[in-house]
């Protein structure tokens, strides 16, 4: 079972929920797809870590063949190419590796070359498998790293896979939830939080994924994220209180379910609810 944990906004509690959910499961794989700032490993402190470099393709021009037709420049919607002073300039860091320029070049002046954009680390934390994607600073897209991280996750049997997604609702998030059986949307009780919850809500609906909401940082009084859910009949699976002790545990890079029975109960029951939801979704409706 593959559970993706996402939120439109950073700092909402994706990693808190993902890490504790994985830790509450007996046998789990935790995959950190937040490649621009992966921090699940700070909690799990994985051992026996193996590293793999991840590359993407960037175009390289051979000036002797380029005749300045500029088909590539006009084609690139990310503007990674410019033509001045009878010479093509390639901006690697802006390139999204679509390969279109190479395909279009009538003179075959462009070829693709591998460029290292980051790495994937795989290690163990007790019985848990911890996989972390790391994108090098300044690179355009973490999608190739996420593809590597999630390749083959459909073939992992009987295991709980928790996918800690990047914030937002752009390409890298879509890539992260693509093979998920269930999406957990983590929301915080602020107007900004609700705005961003609405973005991921639209995304999971677009992908036709079963989903539910975890309300994090719950306080007394009105919760705009809760109102958003109630207005739309969105299932609220768990309410995590805004508490000093949870904040303290987390800021000390402790995993709450391993330190406090109260939180073990919170995340174990969340896991149970998600498992039930997934099984319920898998049952064909008459």
């Amino acid at each position: 079972m593959r559970i993706a944990v996402l939120s439109g906004k950073g700092g909402t509690g994706k990693t808190l929920v993902s890490v504790n959910l994985a830790a509450a499961a007996q046998d789990a794989v935790y995959i950190d797809c937040d490649v621009e700032e992966p921090n699940g490993h700070l909690f799990f402190k994985p051992q026996h870590v193996q590293e793999e470099e991840i590359t993407s393709k960037v175009p390289v021009v051979d000036d002797t063949y380029c005749n300045g037709c500029r088909k590539c420049v006009d084609f690139c919607r990310f503007n990674a190419l410019a033509y001045t002073n009878d010479r093509l300039i390639v901006f690697d860091e802006i390139c999204h590796s679509c390969g279109g320029c190479v395909m279009l070049c009538p003179e075959k002046a462009l070829t693709e070359q591998d460029k290292v954009i980051g790495k994937v680390q795989r290690g163990m934390s007790g019985s848990l498998k911890i996989h972390t994607g790391i994108l090098n600073t300044g690179e355009a897209s973490g999608v190739p790293i996420i593809k590597n991280l999630l390749a083959g996750i459909k073939d992992i049997p009987h295991s709980t896979v928790v996918i800690d997604c990047p914030p937002g609702s752009a390409c890298i998030v879509m890539e992260s939830i693509r093979d998920a059986d269930y999406c957990l949307l983590v929301a915080e009780p602020t107007l900004f939080g609700v705005h961003n919850l609405a973005m991921v809500y639209d995304l999971v609906k677009l992908f036709d994924k079963p989903f539910g909401v975890v309300l994090n940082k719950c306080l007394e009084g009105e919760n705009p994220a809760e109102v958003f859910c109630l207005d739309r009949d969105i299932k609220i699976l768990s309410r995590i209180p805004f508490s000093n002790d949870l904040g303290l545990l987390t800021s000390n890079a402790e995993i709450a379910v391993r330190k406090d029975e109260k939180y073990k109960e919170v995340f174990s029951s969340l896991l149970d609810v998600v498992i039930k939801e997934v099984h319920c979704e898998a049952t064909p409706h008459p």
């Binding site: 420049v73 690139c76 919607r77 990310f78 503007n79 190419l81 410019a82 033509y83 001045t84 901006f91």
Partner: peptide, 14 residues
Amino acid sequence: NPGGAGIKAAQIMV
């Protein structure tokens, strides 16, 4: 444009 606006604008200057 989604990105690289400076490059494209500079190309327009050229």
